[in-house]
Design a protein around this nucleic acid. Structure first.
Lengths: 214, 214, 214, 214
DNA sequence: CATGAATGAGCTTTCATTCAT
DNA sequence: CATGAATGAAAGCTCATTCAT
């Protein structure tokens, strides 16, 4: 084992479990997906899940934790870029979110499902904390834009973000419907994603510009 | 006791089950909600559920069927109203949808969850069929508006509808976050719903007008 | 179902489970006996145990509760009999205990095992409470005997009771050894019990008389 | 480091395991104590137990073998001491047993538990063999005393030994109860053991003398 | 039309043990 | 000689459903 391989904290089997679990939690829900099924699909024995993650619940937390960290990090870096105007930053946020939601569909579905449920689980708390952090960052961006006169003074940032996330989420949740309506029933996954990313990104940017600036 | 009252009496338990099941399916997911819990909360014996509806699955279908029928019916009536302009009709669609989603939160959550899953269940088929019907009606409305010159020619109606439904759904799913951001943590349910309905409705109507007409 | 049958709070299956569980908990210990094995031997399905008793733990509690109640009740009645002298009462206590321990071997073994373990379980608490009650009653009997001049003034009642219970328990726990040493390897169960009851009872009464009166 | 020290170093972990296992088997029973817990408490890796002893079962046998050998050896030496009268030897047996049971509580609890179970295991056979040996030695002592006219002719030695072991065991099993009744709830372990040893030893010697000589 | 008793199948988790290193 | 990774088997329990009444 080389030094680099050693640095990878997650073993191969651990990664397999995480990937399969993400997919099954997304498509079947937390309770709907059984550890047996996860183990079978990940080609490991059932006991590996408890072995690596402690429990089914903790496995879920591991998935959420892994994804959420990256999102926040990227957003922070983006906002620090002083070469961009506030609107450009906002456009970058849109791009980043659209890409995320479209490329990480499984995880998005998990987020959606979690938001429907009661907020008493550890997972729910993780998500809520993340949302708070993201909200904070966005508020800063808006204030900056308003100070510079780029944005209107009476922007409801919460509503705007919810338009971005809600719309994109919904599109991916109802992917099939979207494909039917756009005559893309048999378009390959990559091509479809590329098209949607561009199409939706522009559509939402237009809305953002309208709400923020007009 | 009249014949009609008798009918209501005999179906009272059925209604209780439907209401409780809707809430539990929404907050805990289909697999997460057990028939035992539904039965307990609805104050009936567990066997009643199989007895009335055949199975847990069929109970879910009953919930979905009951709700979806009303939505389509209302939309049909609305679109036939020749006194309204196309934009006014579109506004009415927005109002109707926002109200629906905000007042029938539980059912919306069920819809959201179902859209995440695989589309092989009977329930998923019911929802898909409904969406097709609604899509058809909306396309008609758009065409009418375009013919009359009210709407632009290059409107992506699917994307627009998804903005409406996705955004509103997301707001309600993340109700807590919305309340925090708008300083409404301790606002009563009715007052909150009234405020959100108006606020969101106007916000989305503005977007619709922008996308459809500008 | 007749009125009398209805009065029986325990159903037939419930009784079967209780009996089998008592035997298995006694011979294999609480953790050593699996619900699957109990269910198999009692000729019921595994789920019946949870159905009737809630859990394996609660099943144990049900066994202990059922037995302990009777013991205390019997002792109370015995001590109220004013026709007997204090020593006669004490002899009756010995007889009663010896009989109990010899006839209800399985339950005694459960008690022995429980006393070895940590006293944090509900079962352990039940047993401790019972011991406290019994201790109270015995102290009264001794005081009475001392007041009447039948017993010596410096009797250690705790030690005496522990001799009674400890010895008898040990005899039954090591029944096989006892049989070997007394050439009763192939004596029938009933005859053996009858002999032991008499033999042990007299032996302990002699000790009691010596300790209490000499 | 000498060869002897080296031996101790290599078997240090083995000793740790034996000690922890004895405690846990005593307080939780054989099935109730898991190798994981033993390993954790003994500060070794789980695989060490199978590695050193072969299996959980063999570990139990190792504990029993180690303890039982010493008991028999001590008894043999004691009985060979021609300077003591038979009654003095018997008193020495009592002292030795009481000390053993009180100082080696954990092991005694293991013995008690084992006696409750079915006698088909290797461990049970070891214990039974030991009891046979001890019985043999005791019978010799009694015969000697009877020949010398010190003891009565009709002594039931089995019953007497069972009084000794049964009573002492029970006292330690119900230690808490004993402490409560003797106002020693907060007495230190050493002081308590010293008191009990003396108290119980004298109590049982009195009974022995009564049964053997009066 | 209604229900309590009962169950087989499945759940998550822990078990003692093995094996490659 | 020692151990972390891995696993099949079994644990206690809950599930949706059935059936006799």
């Amino acid at each position: 084992m080389t030094a680099i391989e050693e640095m990878q904290v997650t073993t191969k089997k651990e990664t397999q479990i995480l990937e399969v679990a993400e997919r099954l939690f997304a498509t079947k829900g937390f309770e709907g997906a059984s550890v047996r099924e996860i183990a079978r699909d990940a080609d490991v024995s059932v006991s590996m899940i408890s072995y690596y993650f402690g429990s089914k619940e903790k496995l879920m937390e591991a998935i959420v934790l892994k994804r959420l960290g990256l999102v926040k990090l990227r957003l922070e870096h983006l906002l620090e870029d002083f070469r961009l105007s506030s609107l450009q930053k906002m456009y970058a946020v849109v791009d980043s979110n659209v890409e995320d939601i479209i490329e990480r569909q499984y995880f998005q579905k998990i987020m959606i499902r979690e938001q429907c449920g009661k907020s008493s689980t550890t997972t729910a708390r993780l998500i809520e904390d993340n949302r708070k952090d993201i909200g904070e960052l966005m508020r800063k961006l808006i204030s900056e834009g308003q100070r510079k006169g780029e944005f209107r003074g009476d922007v409801d940032i919460t509503l705007l973000m919810m338009t971005l996330i809600g719309t994109t989420n919904y599109i991916m949740a109802a992917e099939k419907h979207y494909r039917v309506e756009h005559d893309m029933m048999h378009t390959g996954k990559q091509e479809f994603q590329k098209f949607v990313t561009l199409h939706v990104s522009n559509y939402i940017k237009d809305i953002f510009r309208h709400v923020l600036c007009d």
